[in-house]
């Protein structure tokens, strides 16, 4: 069943509700990433989430653990990424610096499967 995201609170809907659910349904995702990743979404209704995708996956608000890498984007750009759901769109956003990454870049790319799962499960309400 599809989740309907509202543009205003997309970040918290995704990281407080949808990602934890996906990680339970698809435990392989965390096993394959096997790292702590920081997500920093700037702008209105943004925030910082720590994705601990190691043995027992946990998603927490705030920087609760030292991440191996951090992905930073504006909330609006993040919403576009989810709406589009394609790796090509993510690459274009990265090339144009609408997505920034720091730390171990290869680990960020392992989020591809999570991005695709999120994209399949939601449609964004503008």
């Amino acid at each position: 069943m599809q989740e309907r995201l509202t543009a205003n609170h997309i970040a918290e809907q995704v990281f407080d509700h949808m990602v934890p659910k996906i990680l339970v349904e698809q435990p392989d995702i965390a096993r394959r990433v096997n790292a702590v990743i920081g997500i920093e979404l700037t702008g209105e209704n943004g925030g910082y989430w720590t994705l601990d995708l190691t043995d027992t996956p946990v998603i927490e608000r705030g920087k609760t653990k030292e991440p191996k890498c951090t992905l930073t984007a504006q909330v609006d750009d993040f919403r576009d990424l989810l709406t589009n759901g394609s790796v090509r769109a993510a690459l274009d956003a990265f090339k144009k610096k609408r997505i920034q990454a720091s730390g171990h870049l290869p680990t960020i790319l392992k989020l591809e499967v999570l991005l695709k799962s999120l994209s399949k499960q939601n449609n964004v309400v503008a």
């Binding site: 690459l91 990265f94 090339k95 870049l105 290869p106 960020i108 790319l109």
Partner: peptide, 9 residues
């Protein structure tokens, strides 16, 4: 930046 991504990939 494209090279960064492809190397990471």
């Amino acid at each position: 930046r494209e090279f960064l991504v492809f190397m990471a990939g």
